[in-house]
């Protein structure tokens, strides 16, 4: 078995030592530090990117919240403006109604007064005519001379009875 040919051992062990030590130095000094820094910088880059992404997400969320707040505020303002306008309109309507109502009432009152004023002389005149009629009737039928004053009193008395 070639594995047990002991005269080959020194050469195998010698070159194992040489090659292994050489490979060790190449790996330890050259290959591994380089790959280590590459991996490290990538990890840092990914961490940075994630951090920035989360910061931007928070910023976006804050912007959204501000926007929603502004929207809610605008909504509330619109509502209050609407309510104010509604109130102002209602007030105006009530005021106009009151004004118009008052004017109509005034006109009715004035008209009633005019009617009353017109009625007074007409009534007095009617009384006068009635009294003259009473005088004339009494004079023609009963041949009684009745004074104007008595005729009026008689009319009033009959008016109270009737």
């Amino acid at each position: 078995m070639p594995q047990l040919e002991f005269h080959t051992f020194p050469s195998q062990i010698f070159w194992l030592l040489v090659v292994f030590v050489a490979l060790y130095f190449v790996m330890a000094r050259l290959a591994l530090p380089k790959i280590g820094t590459v991996l490290e910088s990538r990890r840092r880059k990914i961490d940075d990117d994630l951090e920035r992404a989360s910061a931007q997400r928070e910023e976006a969320a804050a912007l959204l919240a501000a926007y929603e707040k502004a929207l809610a505020k605008a909504h509330a303002e619109a509502k209050s403006i609407h309510a104010q306008a509604h109130q102002a309109m209602a007030d105006m309507i009530a005021r106009r109604q009151a004004e118009v109502g008052a004017r109509i009432a005034d006109e009715i009152r004035a008209a009633e007064q005019r009617i009353h004023a017109a009625k007074q002389p007409a009534m007095a005149e009617l009384e006068e005519v009635s009294a003259e009629l009473v005088q004339a009737v009494a004079d023609r039928i009963a041949k009684v001379k009745v004074t104007m004053t008595d005729a009026r009193a008689a009319l009033k008395a009959s008016g109270r009875e009737g």
Partner: peptide, 13 residues
């Protein structure tokens, strides 16, 4: 001591 470069040493390299 025999430390010849052999096929083993070659393949290690």
């Amino acid at each position: 001591i025999d430390i010849s470069i052999t096929n083993s040493a070659l393949w290690m390299a």
